[in-house]
Design a protein around this nucleic acid. Structure first.
Lengths: 204, 204
DNA sequence: GAACATTTTAAACATTCGTTTAAACTAATC
DNA sequence: GATTAGTTTAAACGAATGTTTAAAATGTTC
């Protein structure tokens, strides 16, 4: 029994994740979720009590997905130049795999800022990464440009994420097909890597 | 009478713009708009026929606002380094003044890509700017890094716009108050200017 | 296999949605 | 000042929303 019930619960959770990612909280109805999961309408409330409770659970998951991989890379024992490339590369792969993730997170937080009240102390986590120590040491040595971690993190992610955030706009404005865009994004990614390393690294 | 009716129509339009920007299309109800405009519910349909017609009208306006000022600057008769700084500065001021604009546009297009079917041939407009000619000439001379206009335009806007797109996240993650954020954004902007110029301009 | 707990179902709930109606109000025209 | 055209109003419309119900179906336990 436990097995079967978990299956239903997960089916709904996964279906809800897909629909929420595509349509957002306001744009998603309980019936949308039930249809996507191919289950009865009442089951969403049977397992999750309400649409909002289900949403919050999924939202937390996705926030974790968004941040955790970056933190992991920032702690890897590699030199800072490699690490920057890896962060950007990872960011790029994540966007390719889940292109709706960032616009979804940004938009939901924009509409209801209270949703972000996670207890996760992200600032401490970022500050205590190996990357942060490497940055500080490099600046002291004069091999890295003096810049705060608050600035370097967005620099590493914004260019790639923005490209996918505005994928529709970019494709339309520049007359790109899906394959055109993919090719373009790939080359853009390399520009971004080079540009950020160029700027940050003063001497090897 | 024309005078009075225009007043009512504009009151609704402006109120709708505020609400749509904050809550998005799905999150906005006709009654929200009527309340914000302090007018009777039936007037939205009396003047604009439907919620969607009103939305489309506003959306077109905002798309114009988003693109036109950039195109204007790209055509200004100044050297390319100054121009890059100006585009970024303009972008920054726009985000400060209308912080909801970009997330709104990105999100609505993401949900309903058909909305972007403007007849505006933006690609041609960008390609035929003075900036585009300066870029091409500079690359031929070897003073500018070879890069497509498709890449340089997002580079100039993404860092700043992304900062405001994720304003909520950034403030929360880095424990910033509103004034903290403003100060931070200002310094971040200077980094972005320097970084892009550094990368693009090979020799003066 | 009878008693029980869990899961699934169809149907309904009250509320809110975008929109329409028809009457009341206002201002201009003759 | 009666007639007309344009504007605003309160009330209602059917449809869709999130949620609940109570019965049916299914699985578990002894």
């Amino acid at each position: 029994m436990k097995c079967v019930s978990e299956k239903s619960e997960d089916k709904i959770r996964e279906a809800a994740k897909r629909v929420f990612l595509k349509k957002g909280y306001d744009g998603t109805t309980s019936r949308d979720i039930a249809n996507e999961a191919d289950m009865n309408i009442a089951l969403t409330n049977y397992y999750f009590r309400s649409k909002e409770k289900l949403f919050i659970e999924i939202f937390k998951d996705l926030m974790g997905l968004y941040f955790q991989s970056v933190i992991d890379i920032l702690n890897k024992p590699v030199d800072i130049k490699t690490k920057i490339s890896e962060v950007i590369e990872n960011n790029y792969q994540m966007m390719k795999q889940e292109p709706d993730l960032v616009i979804f997170i940004m938009n939901e937080i924009h509409k209801v800022p209270e949703r972000l009240l996670l207890k996760i102390p992200l600032y401490q986590q970022f500050k205590s990464t190996l990357f942060s120590q490497q940055l500080e040491a490099g600046i002291k040595k004069g091999t890295l440009r003096p810049i705060r971690i608050e600035s370097i993190l967005p620099l590493m992610t914004s260019c790639i994420e923005f490209l996918f955030l505005g994928k529709g706009i970019h494709q339309q404005v520049f007359n790109m097909s899906d394959t055109d865009f993919q090719e373009f994004a790939e080359s853009h990614k390399e520009h971004v890597k080079a540009m950020i390393c160029n700027y940050l690294i003063l001497a090897d």
